[in-house]
Computed example of a mutant assay.
Amino acid sequence: MTDTMTDMDRDPLARLSDEDVAIWLDDLSRDRLTTGNLQNLIEHSHLVGVTSNPTIFQAAISKSSLYDDDLRRHAELGSSADTAVRDFTTDDVRAAADLFEPIARNSRHGDGRVSIEVDPRLAFDTEGTIAQAADLWTEVGRPNIYVKIPATKAGLPAITATIAAGISVNVTLIFSIDRYREVMDAYQAGLEQRLENGESLDGIASVASFFVSRVDAEVDKRLETIGTDEALGLRGKTAVANARQAYAAYEDFVATERWQRLEAAGALRQRPLWASTSTKNPDYPDTMYVTQLVAPETVNTMPESTLEATADHAVITGDTVRPYREDSANVLAAVRAAGVDLDDATEVLEREGVEKFATSWNELLDSVNAKLEAAQ
């Protein structure tokens, strides 16, 4: 059998891993933990990490009976919904982190990690975010977690302070390339503070979650409103081009002397993470945000439906990001020339992203509070 045939016979998830793309699952629940589903994905689907968010936990806790015993215990204690939810989420993240510990121990990048998000209602509260990030890190008590902090303006100094405190961070809700550059700078500044304080960089890792499909959903809507042939011909192209330009910004960043000094001191690179990779438009291929964003030192966090689609029929052809650096810049220029204000679009997406997570969190608290009252 030739080498080419051997490569083609490998399953798509294995080939994705071969391209140095870390495969993470964008979901976590007690059901996955207790049924062995998560362990099975680790063993058979090349899974090396998990992300969670308020919407994921809202669905997991509200719809499962596996939290009932804990709910009754908290009802007997007179706990608030906030206390109960914190207990449920940190327990689940801790259990998942233990499953991934062998991967974390052997990872050269910072894989084998599970993400837990600060309360989304703190997205515009720098000091509150810093305090809760430290509390979550301590309460989970596992070195292989990421605390998720949104890339709002208020979140940027919180990222620096949290990294400086030795806490690994998953920066979430990044939509624009300019904000992404600020996120990379915030990570770098935190590492520099540690060095200035004579502290080690060992074990500190970070990923920058750059959202993908939501960009097409917002921009396509604007292109359709414009309605010209040029505008309509650009539908479904912005998100991938935006992410490819983000990767170009990453390459430029790690080539700077400032970063090279940190890397020489043992700093791990803050990998780009492609988030929101399920296809929102049914007219688009269901694996397009996987197959079109293959590049080394990246993470792709997928809902299980996208993971299964990738395993079933994705065609992995090698690097699909770096060869398109100039082309992706031209696509974004064409989108702007067609009349789309990309800065406004990404600002809207950030605001809506924070609002959606806050709404999910409030719905979760309301659901748990009702269950606590019913159990009393």
Rank of each mutant, 00 (worst) to 15 (best):
V294C: 10
L122I: 04
L156Y: 02
A158V: 01
I61Q: 09
T152C: 12
P296Y: 00
M184W: 05
D98M: 12
V85P: 03
A334E: 15
N330C: 12
R121T: 14
E308H: 09
E263M: 05
E304C: 06
K63S: 15
D312A: 15
T35Q: 10
F357L: 10
K237V: 06
S200I: 05
A295P: 01
V348P: 03
W361G: 07
F57H: 07
I145E: 01
A239L: 08
V207I: 14
E251Y: 06
A243L: 11
R15N: 12
G112S: 11
E43F: 03
A164R: 01
I167N: 00
L99S: 06
V340E: 13
I174E: 04
G49N: 07
R73T: 13
A151L: 05
Q376A: 14
P102H: 05
D87F: 12
Q132E: 15
W259I: 09
L99D: 08
L16N: 04
E373A: 13
R121E: 14
D9P: 02
G166T: 06
P120S: 09
S360K: 04
T317F: 01
R258F: 03
G227D: 10
L77G: 12
I159N: 06
R235W: 05
A81E: 08
G78V: 01
T35W: 06
E19S: 12
R73I: 12
T126E: 13
E257A: 15
V207H: 05
T152Q: 12
F253K: 03
G266W: 00
D119Y: 00
L201D: 12
D229N: 14
A264L: 08
V171R: 00
D7H: 10
V169Q: 02
A333Q: 13
V368A: 11
A267C: 02
N197A: 15
D27Q: 12
W24K: 01
A158I: 02
G36C: 11
T6G: 11
R113L: 08
N170F: 02
D366N: 13
L77S: 13
N40I: 03
